[in-house]
């Protein structure tokens, strides 16, 4: 991809994404961390769009920035007396070392591998192609994913349900 616009967009979005992800780890305030997390998600969505994956990019905004960030906020505000700080455990140094190693390894692998790059242009229309693929080739995983969603939903409800106040849960 040598289009100047795409190159500029890639570098800007990459900096936003990684910078905000770094800030998620760095800031002390959990609410600020969530805001940076959203910014990072938006950056990833932008990267998707530079990869001409506009459906996935929009889904990324909708699900991650719109829904999962809200769930995280709910997790914060539903646990009021717990600390709202974003502190590290004592495992900080090993974690830094380990994640540094992982990043080095992944980076080395991605540069060292000789990928079979194709020179086809970006996708023209992804939404319908994804739809066809979902309901044709991947119909079984699709159904399983639907079942998984249902199970997760029921599981979440059952986990937080208070056994002691069955009657009170009605109102």
């Amino acid at each position: 991809m040598e289009d100047t616009g795409t190159v500029v967009a890639f570098w800007a979005l990459a900096i936003i994404t990684i910078g905000s992800a770094f800030m998620v780890a760095a800031v002390r305030n959990l609410i600020h961390a969530v805001v940076f997390l959203v910014l990072s998600f938006l950056g990833v969505a932008g990267l998707y769009i530079t990869l001409s994956a506009d459906f996935v990019g929009v889904v990324q905004i909708l699900i991650y920035s719109g829904a999962i960030a809200i769930l995280v906020i709910f997790a914060i505000v539903l646990t009021p007396q717990a600390g709202r700080d974003n502190a590290e455990t004592s495992m900080r140094l090993p974690a830094v070392v380990l994640s540094g190693l992982v990043a080095t390894m992944l980076g080395y692998a991605s540069i060292d591998t000789n990928w079979s790059i194709s020179d086809r242009p970006g996708f023209e229309e992804t939404a319908s192609a994804i739809g066809v693929a979902l309901l044709d080739k991947y119909i079984l995983p699709f159904e399983i994913a639907a079942a998984l969603m249902l199970v997760a939903m029921l599981g979440a409800i059952i986990i937080v349900r208070d056994e002691g106040t069955e009657g009170a849960a009605e109102d």
Binding site: L78, P80, Q81, V160, R161, D162, T165, A168, A169
Partner: peptide, 8 residues
């Protein structure tokens, strides 16, 4: 669902 919450 009952949650411990801070009265304010």
């Amino acid at each position: 669902m009952t949650l411990k919450s801070e009265p304010y």
